[in-house]
């Protein structure tokens, strides 16, 4: 166990956890931030996507010891801001079961933050690591394009 002080969702928090504990489980077990989901534990599905210094990362394979002074943002950090991605997702009515959607949104926000007008290829590249078992890809693609317009 070790003490870590991390920057998360614009706040500083201190936790006492094992160094190898993945950020996903720190969020869920220790911080009660439940919007970030477990899907595979091996960085293959994207349900656990969060932003580390603005970049989308798979929190299930990211030991807490590795983030250092980096800043973390989770869906809870974004949900309070009115990012156009949320409006687009709502307009297009993207979710079915909804479980993967917070991870999808985190990847989509990261994409739009660095590419204001992504084409299909850019969407494929940015979103390929986020699986949706319900198959909402057709709507996710539309919603990203819609969010780009709203931006």
């Amino acid at each position: 166990m070790a003490i870590y002080t991390i920057q998360i969702n614009y706040k500083e928090v201190t936790i006492d956890v094992p160094a190898e504990k993945p950020v996903l489980w720190v969020l869920r077990d220790d911080l009660g931030l439940l919007g970030t989901k477990y899907g595979c534990g091996i960085a293959q599905c994207g349900a656990c996507t969060v932003h580390l210094n603005g970049n989308p990362v798979r929190s299930c394979a990211l030991p807490i010891a590795s983030i250092g002074k980096g800043t973390l943002l989770t869906i809870e950090g974004y949900a309070s801001k009115k990012h156009p991605v949320f409006k687009a997702w709502e307009e297009i009515n993207v979710p079915q079961c909804g479980y993967c959607q917070t991870g999808q949104i985190m990847s989509a926000i990261a994409l739009l933050n660095r590419n204001k007008n992504p084409d299909d290829k850019a969407i494929d590249a940015a979103m390929n690591g986020n699986l949706c078992r319900c198959g909402t890809y057709y709507r996710i693609r539309k919603a990203i394009k819609r969010a780009a317009k709203l931006n």
């Binding site: 931030l33 439940l34 919007g35 970030t36 989901k37 477990y38 989770t74 869906i75 809870e76 949900a79 949320f86 997702w89 709502e90 009515n93 979710p95 909804g98 479980y99 959607q101 917070t102 949104i105």
Partner: peptide
């Protein structure tokens, strides 16, 4: 077509799944 009544909970990460 009507709106999914749970859309805000889902998108904000507040929807309570079993886990």
């Amino acid at each position: 077509s009507v709106k999914n009544p749970d859309i805000h909970e889902i998108l904000s990460g507040k929807a309570v799944f079993g886990l």
